[in-house]
Every structure is written in structure tokens, then in C-alpha cells.
């Protein structure tokens, strides 16, 4: 059985860019372990030769033809951004 510790919660939070106070890490680890433990009950079922189920309904992936049907809506695309200049999104400088 997998076990989530405090450090793992902190790591997942950082990767997801979610700020979690130190005193919340331990309780969260407990909650996550409960969820995982609950799901792990499924391991009692023998799933040899059973394909992973991608959907509960019997549908296939829908394909589209290669046509330009969208775009040309810069104002809508930029509308919700806090800042944009010359048609670009303007974000705090990312330096690597």
C-alpha cells in the first residue's frame, strides 16, 4: 500500500502551484491516505486480461477533418488576461 507523507504532500502542492500552510500538510496527508486506501480495495479484484476502461459509455473518439474553422479572435483570447501589449500576453518576466 502506498503511503503519502508530509514531504510528498508538500512536493505535490509545489508542483501544482498550490500554497498550503505547514500545519495543514499533516492533516492533508491523512486525508489523501484515506482516499488512496479506499481506492486500493479495488486491488482485491482480479483484473488479469481486463483492458483499462476509458469510458463508461460505449463511444469512440470523435475525429474532425483538417479544416480551419476557428481562430481570428484575438480580443476574446486576450480579454481575461491581466495584461497584454501589442497583441501579446504580457506576463512577469520568465528568466531561465
Amino acid at each position: 500500500m502506498s503511503h503519502i507523507d508530509k514531504a510528498t504532500v508538500a512536493k505535490i502542492a509545489r508542483l501544482s502551484r498550490i500554497k498550503i500552510e505547514d500545519d495543514k500538510l499533516e492533516p492533508l496527508a491523512g486525508e489523501l491516505n484515506n482516499i488512496l486506501g479506499w481506492v486500493e480495495q479495488l486491488e482485491e479484484v482480479n483484473t488479469d486480461n481486463v483492458l483499462p476502461m476509458a469510458s463508461v459509455v460505449d463511444v469512440k473518439l470523435r475525429w474532425r477533418t483538417d479544416e480551419v474553422t476557428d481562430g481570428g479572435k484575438r480580443d476574446s483570447v486576450l480579454k481575461n488576461s491581466p495584461n497584454h501589449e501589442y497583441g501579446f500576453f504580457a506576463v512577469p518576466k520568465v528568466i531561465e
Binding site: V77, F88, F89, A90, K93
Partner: peptide
């Protein structure tokens, strides 16, 4: 991303 167009901002074209 374009990092060299503005002193404070990175410009992003999607």
C-alpha cells in the same frame, strides 16, 4: 515566449 522585448515582461504568443 519572447523574453527580450520588454524590461519587465515576457511576451507570449499562442
Amino acid at each position: 515566449s519572447m523574453h527580450d522585448q520588454h524590461p519587465q515582461y515576457t511576451y507570449v504568443d499562442l
